[in-house]
């Protein structure tokens, strides 16, 4: 079971983790992109932190939708609409809930990833954030069917996301700015897959607390 309070702390932890990894993400992005991923994500989640107190009394769906709208209007780049859509869709999927079962949590993440798919139209192994999310969702669904507890389910998902993130290193990018580098994009970890992993890991750490 995940409470509303935990969802709020997840967002706070995500903001803190993205701030701590701002330079790391930007460095990854300067290798194959345009050196702004860390700065953009940090700016976006700082705005989310400003907005959070105003929606704290709302349900989880509303909190996530507000997070999405805030990211859409503050991040820019490709990650703004992608992460923005992720949170908007995840909020809509569990509308009006004050707490979430493990299945709800899966529904939330799955709807968010569907949003990323519709907006960005990535395929697996295009070297994008989807390469972290797709294996994470698959692993999570498998773990749920075996009856594991929330922490174990998320641990399984995070491990798969981490592996998916690392698997982007040898891939040649086929989406986004990195795709223009052709073979030169090989050998670098995708910044979007990395921030997605960090976000999911922040959820696990929140639930573990």
């Amino acid at each position: 079971m995940i409470t509303k309070d935990q969802i709020v702390r997840w967002l706070e932890k995500t903001a803190a983790v993205l701030q701590a990894n701002k330079t790391y993400l930007t460095d990854l992005d300067s290798a194959i992109g345009d050196a702004d991923h860390g700065t953009n994500m940090d700016r976006g989640f700082k705005k989310v932190m400003e907005k959070l107190p105003t929606v704290f009394d709302n349900d989880i769906g509303n909190i996530l939708k507000t997070t999405g709208m805030t990211l859409i209007s503050s991040v820019g780049g490709a990650s703004g609409p992608l992460y923005g859509t992720f949170f908007m869709r995840s909020g809509m999927a569990i509308a009006a809930k004050e707490e979430l079962s493990d299945e709800d949590l899966f529904t939330l993440l799955q709807a968010g990833v569907e949003g990323i798919l519709q907006r960005g139209r990535p395929n697996l192994e295009d070297k994008t954030m989807y390469d972290a999310w797709a294996p994470a969702l698959e692993a999570m669904q498998g773990a749920l069917s075996t009856g594991m507890g929330t922490v174990e389910v998320l641990e399984t998902a995070v491990a798969a996301a981490e592996q998916g993130m690392k698997n982007t290193i040898p891939l040649q990018a086929r989406k986004g700015r990195a795709s223009y580098l052709g073979e030169r994009s090989i050998g670098h970890q995708d910044p979007g897959a990395t921030s997605s992993y960090l976000m999911l890991n922040a959820l696990l750490e929140t639930v573990k607390e």
Partner: peptide
């Protein structure tokens, strides 16, 4: 205008 080398946002 967006931030430097960052696309503007839909709003």
């Amino acid at each position: 205008p967006g931030e430097v080398f960052t696309s503007p946002t839909p709003d």
